[in-house]
């Protein structure tokens, strides 16, 4: 293992922020894994830390395949993680909205540029990312439809689904989008929680990455077989949104099979306990995403349902 400083951001009265990468093996740049880009992405950091530990053992056991290199960057925003701020506080900016970055730009643009330059020449890229609202997903790997994506390779993670999503305008400044444009087969994995450690989800994410690295011939290690995986798109998912606000009480959890018309959740008046809305599924299928925050705002996406095929 070789520990490298990818970039250093000096600070006036704090210690310099070093962005560290951990490189395993020698030769072609096979796979890069990027963890936390936000200061609250603790779970993403944790999965990377465990992956570095795992790869260290693999390397000791001569499990890195000759001519292959794996690099892990656990976090690019350690200074914000230390102060518990999601954004890069001096600019109040989201690092994952600053790609492709600019080497002579603002601090976040410089970080984004340095990170992308480091990982752009890798054949495969995996970003561990968080979701913009609290909730639970069926395990899946996702990528944006940039015209450069390769969903078939995503099947090798062995997660139940490979989700190809249409990018929105704002997505064009994310790492994943720009990584794909740079020619890397880039994938995003949601590692369950964000601000806290979820051991089961971390294990599952780690297993998926190890499976992919073995499948691509980058490492040779013991790994558990994956699941049968299907490719889905936005068109396969039906959204159930809230038309009222209040306290949220789920009846069904992610992964549940539901029949058309079945009750999914209640939105409750937070003052008197009366029911404001009963959310029901408009289709038969499986709950792909379930919101799990205590409060619901009107228009919140509460469920995504993967419709059953006839």
């Amino acid at each position: 293992m070789k520990k490298e400083v990818l970039m250093t951001i000096p600070s006036y009265f704090r210690e310099p922020m070093n962005i560290l990468s951990f490189r395993f093996g020698k030769g072609e740049k096979s796979c890069a894994i990027v963890g936390a880009l936000r200061g609250d992405e603790i779970q993403q950091l944790y999965v990377c830390a465990r992956l570095v530990s795992f790869l260290r053992d693999v390397e000791k056991d001569n499990g890195l395949q000759p001519g292959k290199t794996v690099t892990v960057i656990p976090t690019a925003i350690g200074a914000s993680m230390n102060t518990g701020t999601r954004l890069w506080a001096p600019e109040n900016m989201d690092l994952n909205r600053r790609f492709p970055g600019d080497p002579s730009g603002s601090t976040t643009e410089r970080i984004a540029n340095a990170l992308l330059e480091k990982v752009r020449s890798y054949q495969y890229g995996i970003q561990l990312t968080s979701f913009y609202q609290p909730g639970s997903f069926i395990p899946h790997v996702r990528m944006m439809n940039t015209g450069h994506q390769n969903p078939d390779l995503g099947l090798e993670f062995g997660l139940p689904y490979v989700y190809v999503r249409e990018p929105r305008t704002a997505d064009q400044s994310t790492l994943n989008y720009n990584w794909q444009l740079a020619g890397t087969q880039a994938y995003s994995l949601y590692a369950g929680k964000t601000t806290e450690i979820d051991e089961n989800a971390a294990d599952q994410t780690l297993r998926a990455i190890i499976r992919f690295l073995n499948s691509r011939g980058i490492i040779r290690s013991e790994f558990t077989p994956g699941q049968y995986s299907s490719i889905i798109t936005n068109h396969d998912l039906t959204t159930v949104s809230a038309s009222s606000a209040g306290l949220f009480r789920r009846v069904k959890l992610a992964g549940a099979h539901v029949r058309k018309g079945e009750q999914l959740a209640f939105i409750i008046n937070p003052l008197d306990g009366s029911i404001r809305e009963v959310l029901k599924t408009p289709v038969t299928g499986m709950l792909f995403f379930v919101q799990d925050g205590p409060f619901i705002t009107e228009h919140n996406v509460v469920f995504n349902i993967l419709a059953a095929k006839k």
Binding site: R86, L87, N92, D94, R97, S130, Y132, Q133, P134, R168, T169, A170, S173, T239, S241, G293, T297, E298, H299, N300, V301
Partner: peptide, 28 residues
């Protein structure tokens, strides 16, 4: 605060054109 207070503190001026059936911010 510059951002919209929400689970992830999003910049409203990076959320257009929004979506008819999107998140609360996208819908707004």
């Amino acid at each position: 605060e510059r951002m919209v207070p929400s689970h992830t503190w999003l910049d409203m001026n990076r959320a257009f054109p929004g979506q008819k059936d999107g998140t609360p911010l996208e819908t707004m």
